[in-house]
Design a binder for these strands. Structure first.
Lengths: 122, 122
DNA sequence: CATCAATTTAGCTAATAAGCTAAATAATTA
DNA sequence: TAATTATTTAGCTTATTAGCTAAATTGATG
């Protein structure tokens, strides 16, 4: 269950044009995406989503993208896994599910006229 | 349908502690909330959610809360309606529905292995 | 073990955002 | 129409964020 601070962190992470586009890219990928744990590590394709391949899609310096990715990882909206000397990046679907549920519940309970706790952890 | 810029604006609006709490307050309200258009305007109760009653719940100056509310209104996450010389505030449920749907679809299509367009308007 | 590739950290600058007080505006009421 | 209430606007200060380059780190490979 996401607490208030985590939710704010998630919205902050998505509330910036560069990070939003990175997020979008990680989902839609112009390149192959994600780590398949069922395959041996040396099977990972060269074009899989890593920091460099994401940075290539933007007109910003690599360290800038690296910082954005760190912020997104800290917010738990992406997962970064190191394999060899590359870091592979994929969306954090669990977090997305929680956020989806949170908004769905917000609407549902509001329409039922109940007092809804958008966040009941604090 | 929310375009990319609008989504970023919505996340930015929710990605700040003060605004998040205001948003939460508008839903959960420690006070009576919302405008009921089916009732005559002079039927509105004194404690209904207006700028002042929201500001009272925070340790910030009124103009600060007013600015935050403007930002939330511009992002279409709340609705502000003037009646007499007060402004009544309620959540924008349509936007919440769209956001809920957006995340639900994101998860669903990702799990189906499809290439998901988190935003296909730009 | 030297080099290369991938990424992060440090330290800087400029832009943006969040707070404030004082003043202005708008609508109501005495 | 003067006073009161509700809200916004203006203008300021401080904090935060987003970008940069240069340097450091990590791990792989010749």
């Amino acid at each position: 269950m996401l607490d208030m601070d985590k939710k704010i962190q998630i919205f902050k992470a998505l509330g910036n044009e560069t990070r939003f586009k990175i997020f979008k890219n990680i989902f839609t990928g112009g390149y192959a995406c994600s780590i398949d744990d069922t395959k041996p590590k040396d099977d990972l394709i060269a074009q899989a989503t890593c920091v460099t391949s994401i940075a290539e899609q933007f007109d910003f310096a690599l360290p800038t993208i690296s910082r954005h990715l760190k912020e997104m990882k800290d917010a738990d909206i992406i997962i970064m896994k190191k394999s060899k000397n590359k870091i592979y990046i994929e969306p954090n679907i669990e977090t997305m599910k929680e956020i989806a549920e949170c908004f769905t519940k917000l609407v549902k309970e509001y329409e039922e006229g109940a007092v809804y706790q958008f966040d009941n952890t604090k």
